[in-house]
């Protein structure tokens, strides 16, 4: 059986792989959307934090013998903390300025971080061994699914779901949403909005670091790994609607899927297809698929 001359088996495989890549897009675009929603900052350093996550896992393993599972918790906490420090010391001075300043500042930070790692570890990158418990895989009938990829999709799906629930269904989430809409009024109710902002930035950054740890055994750990990905993730956020939490998650998975299918039919276009969709979405719905029209 085949679809447009492509065997159904290969087609199903690509859908599965698309979903897995979509999981990375979702978790990264979720962090970006949260940060943009509350801080109004287009965080160009997000790719660098993703890279820091992967390097963090690698350095913990190489120097302290801390394994992948512990790194999944420790690294996002550490990088999240770094995010909080950066927000307190650097970002808060530019909230009242135009978006452009935030973009330039975070882009500059990203260049510095990538430059430091390139000088220290070279451009070719390093290898992170697959943890023993993630070796092997499952035969799904239509494809062989490595355990590492299955874990990525489960872990990422779970983190996205928990984040969405935390923001939409909890009291802290309601403060966050209130602070996003009307920060001064929220502060008048006795909520510490500056602290909320710091923690939100730290959390968004921690999500990027978490994705970085997930990526370490699968992709080459190199200083440029985030820069290559971040542009696509920005397109995903724009398609989902800037600042929309559910939009970021859904469009992440959806665009991973579209990209996967493109890799079968027209491989050369796979790096472009997301931007074509972005252009179309912006023409038809300027606020994005899930964004609120002003």
């Amino acid at each position: 059986m085949s679809i447009f001359n492509i065997p159904i088996q290969l087609f199903s495989t690509q859908i599965m792989l698309g979903l897995i890549n979509g999981a990375f897009y979702a978790i990264l675009s979720l962090g970006l959307a949260i940060i943009f929603g509350l801080l109004n900052i287009v965080n160009f350093a997000h790719g660098a934090f993703y890279m820091l996550g992967a390097f963090g896992a690698l350095l913990l393993l190489d120097h302290l013998g801390i394994n992948y599972w512990a790194a999944l918790v420790i690294v996002p906490l550490l990088i999240g903390l770094l995010g909080c420090v950066i927000e307190r010391s650097v970002l808060r001075w530019i909230y009242d300025l135009d978006h452009l300043y935030g973009m330039i500042l975070t882009f500059g930070m990203s260049l510095v971080m990538v430059g430091i790692f390139r000088n220290m570890y070279g451009a070719t990158g390093l290898a992170y061994s697959m943890p023993p418990s993630l070796q092997g895989g499952f035969n799904l009938g239509f494809m062989y699914l490595p355990a590492s990829r299955a874990f990525v999709i489960v872990a990422s799906g779970l983190v996205c779901l928990l984040t969405w629930l935390a923001i939409e269904k909890t009291r802290v989430g309601s403060w966050l949403r209130a602070a996003t809409e009307k920060p001064q009024l929220t502060e008048a109710f006795g909520i510490n909005v500056p602290l909320l902002i710091t923690l939100t930035y730290g959390f968004g950054v921690a999500l990027a670091a978490f994705a970085g740890v997930l990526a370490a055994p699968i992709f080459s750990v190199n200083p440029m790994m985030g820069s290559d990905l971040i542009i696509v993730v920005f397109a995903v956020v724009v398609i989902g609607g800037m600042g929309s939490i559910s939009g970021a998650i859904l469009s992440g998975f959806m665009l991973g899927l579209v990209e996967g299918v493109t890799k079968v039919f027209w491989p050369q276009a796979s790096s472009t297809v997301i931007f074509v969709i972005m252009a179309i979405v912006l023409l038809v719905r300027p606020a994005g698929l899930f964004g609120k029209q002003d």
Binding site: P7, Q9, L10, T13, Q14, L17, G18, N21, M143, R149, I218, F219, M224, M225, D228, L229, G260, K263, V264, P267, Q268, S270, S271, T272
Partner: peptide, 20 residues
Amino acid sequence: SVVAPLNTADFSSYLLQAPA
């Protein structure tokens, strides 16, 4: 054969076309 864009992070989609 499959032609992949430069600086692709995930090649599995391309590679899995080989056994097929």
